[in-house]
Structures are given as C-alpha cells and as structure tokens.
Design a protein around this nucleic acid. Sequence first.
DNA 1: GACATGACCGATG
DNA 2: CCATCGGCCATGT
Length: 118
Amino acid sequence: MSRATAAETMIARIRAAVAAIPPGETCSYGIVALRAGAPGRARLVGRVLREAPAELQLPWHRVVRADGRLAFETGSEAWHRQTRLLADEGVQVRHGRVELRFRAQADTLDELLWRPPA
DNA sequence: GACATGACCGATG
DNA sequence: CCATCGGCCATGT
C-alpha cells in the first residue's frame, strides 16, 4: 500500500475542512486549521489553498482572515474575485471585510467550531 | 544548514 | 489604522 506522509494527510484534511464550509458562510484560516486537526497552523492552510489545484474546486473564497478581512491585497485582482464570489453567495463584503458573527458562547467546542451563527 | 518569505493568529502599544 | 513581537512551519534560495 502507498503510505501517505503526515504532511500529505494534513493537506488532505485541510482541503476537506475547506470543502466542508457551506455556501454563504465564511471561516478563518485558524478555524480551518483547528477543524483539520492542526491547531495553530493557520499559515499552513494558506499554503495549501495557494497550491491547491483548480480542479478540486475548493471554496477557497469562503476562507478569510480572523478579523474578517480578505487575505489578499486590497484592490488586487484576487481580492475582487473573492469579493464577487462571496457576494454571489449572499455574503456582504464591505471595505474588504466580511461580517464575522462568531457567537461568544457555545456549549461545546464542537458547537463553537461547526454551528453556523444564528 | 542558515536565512527569508508567506492567501495567518493573537496580544500589545 | 499602524507597527512590533512571538508562535506556527513548509518552501525556496
């Protein structure tokens, strides 16, 4: 059998975590890393997205920074593209920011990570 | 192997 | 808003 390296497994888990973000919702790099089982490794998520083949059709546009800002340079081509993709899903992007509505309290960690904001 | 660079994060000033 | 700092760590030079 082919043995996947730890890095390859991690990449697959991160891709899966991104693919699992439902339309109309956004998620930060840090949360994606957490969901993928790699707490504190947000930068790795950025890397994985940057190198992900387009054929996978990952919803990369649903991943934003922890403060709600898009990860790209404001006004850049990628920035505009992401803004439009989000708008098409009904996500308001104002001044390069999305409305992050993380609920402050949750009963369980799982709920905090996965339950969509009301 | 040292050093710099990132689609990052959170805290602090 | 900006800048700095410590964490994180795969990649490229």
